[in-house]
Design a protein around this nucleic acid. Structure first.
Lengths: 245, 245
DNA sequence: CGATTCCTTGAGACAGCTCAATTTCGGTGG
DNA sequence: CCACCGAAATTGAGCTGTCTCAAGGAATCG
C-alpha cells in the first residue's frame, strides 16, 4: 500500500514535539507506535462527512484540511483549520458533527478510537497534552469569533494572512522579520468560508492589498509580504503580539 | 463577610453533577472542599480584565457572566457566555486575554490556581472532566462561528434564544415542550455583542419576531416562546437537534 | 418627578452581496 | 510547441441588509 512509504518511527516524526504525543516518554511512544497507522488524502478529498461514524482520531503530519459546517441551503462556514501537528477527532464521541476535507495532499497519523481512549486513561501525558491543545484551539476559536463578528472584510483578510504567517513561522521556528512568503493552502472560496465572506469580496480585498503594495502575489497561491508589520497594522488588532522580534 | 452565607457543602451544591467536579468521588471532593472559597459579583461588575493576572480558576454556581474581547477602537465581541456549572480560567496560564464581566448577580466557587493545578495531576477525574467540558465548549464555539459568519440578523436572534432555551431546559432537566419562558440575562447591547450586530438591529429583529407572534415579550428581559418549533425553524438549522421530544 | 439607563423606531448611508462577464493559468492532447 | 479546456480568479454594476446617526419612549431609582 502506498502509505507504507510514508511510515516512519515516531522518533523521526516531524511533529513529534508539537502533536498530541509531544509529552510522551519512550515507553509511551512504544505503545502509540503499535496502534498507529498512516492515511493520505488527495487535495479536495473528503476525510469525513458530518454525521459519519468516526472510529479513529488522528494527528496531521503534513498538509492542510478544513473543518466546516454547512447549512441546508448550502451556506458554509469553516470552523477549524487543521495544520501539521493539529489533532482531529474527539475521544468519547462516535460521530462527527463536521465535514473534514483535505485542502492539500495530507498525511494523517491515525489511531483507532477505542484503543486510543483506553490509552488516554493509562498514559496521563496524552490526556494532559490533549487538554492543553484543546484549550489552545478554544483560544484560536475565540480569536476567530472576533474576526467573524466585528472585523471588516479588509481586516479579515489581513488577519487570516497574519495567522497563516504565524503558523508557518512556528513550524520553521524563529521570529518573523522582514519579508515572508506565505504558501496559501486555500482557494479564494475556502478563504471566504473561513472568513464569512463571499469569494468575490475576498478577491477584491486581495486585489486592493496588492495594489497598495501590502502584499505581492507571486502566484495565486503564494503571497509575499514585504513588511509583516504593515500587514499586521491592517488587522485592527494591537500590534504587540510578539510575533515580530 | 457576605460570602459566608452562601457557603455550603459540595454535596448540596446545585452544580455538583455538571461542574468540573462532577466526576469526583467523596475523597476527592474533600480535597476540593478544603481549597474552595466563594465570591460574588453584582450585575455589571468586572470579574477580570484582559491582561490581568489571574490567580484563580472557578465554577459558576449561580448567575451569568460574559467573556469578551475589545478592539482598540471599542468594537466588542463576546466570545463566551458563562452559565451555571461553566468553568472560568485556564490552568497553566497566569494571565487572561479576555474581559470577564458579571451580567447578573453571580456566585463563583473559586480555587487558587496553583493548588488546583497540582490537584489536577493527582486527581485524574478533575482533568478528565475538564477535558470533556473544554471539548464541549469548543463545539459551542464552532456553532457560534457558524452563527457569526453565515446567519442573517433574524437567524442570529432566533439561534441565541434557542441556545438559551436549551441551556435553561438542561438545568431544569426534561425536554422542552410547548410554551417556554426564557429569562434573558442579557441587555440588547450584550445580545448585539454576542451576535456581532448593533443593538439597534437586535431591537428591530426582536420587535419583528414579536409582531409575528414567534415570541412574546412578557417583560424586556423575559421572553415567552409559545411554540419552540416555530422559533427553531427561524434559526436556519436543521430541526433535528433532539431538543423537542 | 428629574435623572439615568435601557430600549424602540425612523431615515439615510454604505459595506458587502448577487448576478454576470471576462481573464488567467495549469494542464493535456494533438 | 501550440491550441484548447476547465477550474479558479478577477472585475464590473446594481442591490440590499445592516449600520450610523438621531430622536423619542419606558422603566427604575434616587
Amino acid at each position: 500500500m502506498a502509505t507504507a512509504t510514508l511510515d516512519h518511527a515516531c522518533e523521526d516524526c516531524p511533529i513529534r514535539h508539537r502533536a498530541v504525543c509531544a509529552r510522551c516518554d519512550a515507553d509511551e511512544l512504544d505503545v502509540l507506535e503499535q496502534i498507529k497507522y498512516y492515511r493520505t488524502f488527495e487535495a479536495g478529498q473528503p476525510i469525513v462527512f458530518a454525521g459519519d461514524e468516526m472510529n479513529f482520531v488522528a494527528s496531521v503530519v503534513k498538509g492542510v484540511a478544513s473543518i466546516s459546517q454547512t447549512m441546508e441551503d448550502g451556506r458554509t462556514q469553516m470552523v477549524g483549520l487543521l495544520l501539521p501537528s493539529d489533532f482531529l477527532g474527539r475521544p468519547g464521541r462516535a460521530t462527527t458533527p463536521y465535514d473534514v476535507i483535505a485542502l492539500s495532499e495530507i498525511t494523517l497519523c491515525c489511531f483507532r478510537r477505542k484503543p486510543f481512549e483506553t490509552l488516554m486513561t493509562s498514559t496521563p501525558h496524552v490526556a494532559e497534552r490533549l487538554l492543553a491543545m484543546t484549550l489552545d484551539e478554544l483560544d484560536a476559536a475565540r480569536e476567530w469569533m472576533l474576526i467573524l463578528g466585528r472585523k471588516t472584510a479588509r481586516e479579515k483578510i489581513a488577519s487570516l494572512l497574519t495567522i497563516l504567517a504565524r503558523r508557518e513561522a512556528e513550524l520553521g521556528m524563529a521570529k518573523v522579520k522582514g519579508p515572508v512568503v506565505i504558501d496559501l493552502p486555500l482557494t479564494r472560496e475556502a478563504m471566504a468560508d473561513y472568513l464569512g465572506l463571499t469569494l468575490e469580496t475576498v478577491s477584491r480585498q486581495m486585489s486592493a492589498l496588492k495594489s497598495e503594495g501590502v502584499i505581492v502575489l507571486e502566484d495565486k497561491r503564494k503571497v509575499r509580504v514585504p513588511d509583516i508589520r504593515t500587514l499586521m497594522s491592517e488587522t485592527g488588532d494591537d500590534m504587540d503580539g510578539g510575533l515580530v522580534a
